[in-house]
């Protein structure tokens, strides 16, 4: 009995500590959510979390935007950028991962090491020559600088994640499929892909959220306002509004991150597994 109550106290204290820490961690996010329903006056004059009354002005005015271009354009642009990028990633990464995981061709080791080493290749180093290159290709102001790299599996994170998962599937599967007369493509499509679904889904989830939030690359490769994504639109709004309409800025920030947050809540197990299996992500 004594032992039990002692561990009860310990558990209680632990819960207390964790909920306190957790509350501090997400308080800013919760605060932003509720602030988006406040009037501008209330945002600056009250420290209360909940709004006095739920006011949708921030959303209505913010959504219209202030030049001719509103957030509906930014949202559509974001989707035009994100959806093909995710689809291409999901097609290309399993192919490359399969090539590395199941075939031992000459120079396999060197090529694989090269691919892994690009994990540490800083994007910032490549951005200047890539800009010049994409400009010569006529790709600026299109989303090709995002979709084509995805099609060519240049983000080793996803390939490696699926590779790790593939390595955990027994080779006997391939062998018996071969006896049944399947070739390399048949084995991938009929046998391995169905089993790889969780890993592929993890890759899709990561790619979706990172591309959705990307700012630096869009800033550089997409100069025109009518091609801006949500991130760029938000930044522009903040520059123009300066300190005036924080309720609109907050509302549009919520618009920009709420889809990601909801998506995360429904798919979080894939996140955790994705990170744990690759041991990656910065």
């Amino acid at each position: 009995m004594i032992r039990k109550s002692k561990s009860d106290i310990r558990n209680f204290l632990l819960h207390l500590l964790l909920s306190l820490l957790g509350a501090i961690m997400i308080y800013p996010l919760v605060w932003m959510f509720f602030a988006s329903f406040k009037t501008n006056d209330e945002i600056f004059n009250s420290v209360r979390l909940l709004p006095a009354e739920f006011n949708l002005d921030g959303y209505i005015l913010g959504w219209k935007g202030n030049r001719q271009i509103g957030f509906n354009t930014f949202l559509i642009n974001t989707l035009k950028l994100v959806v093909p990028t995710v689809i291409f990633t999901v097609i290309s990464s399993p192919l490359v991962a399969y090539g590395f995981a199941r075939f031992r061709f000459p120079f396999h080791r060197i090529l694989f090491a090269l691919m892994l080493s690009t994990l540490m290749l800083p994007n910032t180093v490549l951005v200047v020559p890539r800009y010049i290159m994409f400009r010569n290709f006529g790709w600026l102001d299109t989303y090709l600088p995002f979709t084509i790299p995805a099609l060519l599996a240049t983000a080793p994170f996803y390939t490696f994640m699926i590779y790790q998962f593939l390595r955990s599937l027994p080779v006997e599967l391939d062998e018996s499929a071969k006896i049944d007369g399947l070739g390399p493509i048949g084995i991938l499509l009929r046998i391995l892909l169905p089993l790889l679904k969780p890993a592929i889904f993890s890759a899709a989830v990561f790619q979706l959220i990172w591309t959705w939030n990307d700012f630096f690359n869009v800033l550089i490769f997409v100069p025109s306002v009518n091609k801006y994504t949500l991130s760029l639109g938000l930044r522009m709004m903040m520059d123009i509004e300066a300190a005036s309409a924080w309720n609109q800025i907050m509302a549009m920030s919520v618009v920009a991150i709420l889809p990601c947050a909801l998506f995360f809540f429904f798919t979080q197990r894939y996140f955790v597994e994705g990170i744990a299996t690759t041991g990656l992500k910065g």
Binding site: L21, G22, M25, I26, L29, M32, I209, W210, N213, F215, F216, S231, L232, L234, R235, S253, V254, A256, I257, C260, A261, F264, F265, Q268, F271, V272
Partner: peptide, 14 residues
Amino acid sequence: TIFYLPSIFGGSVA
């Protein structure tokens, strides 16, 4: 989940 949540937004503008 709670502790991980902020990380998914990475360096986002919001």
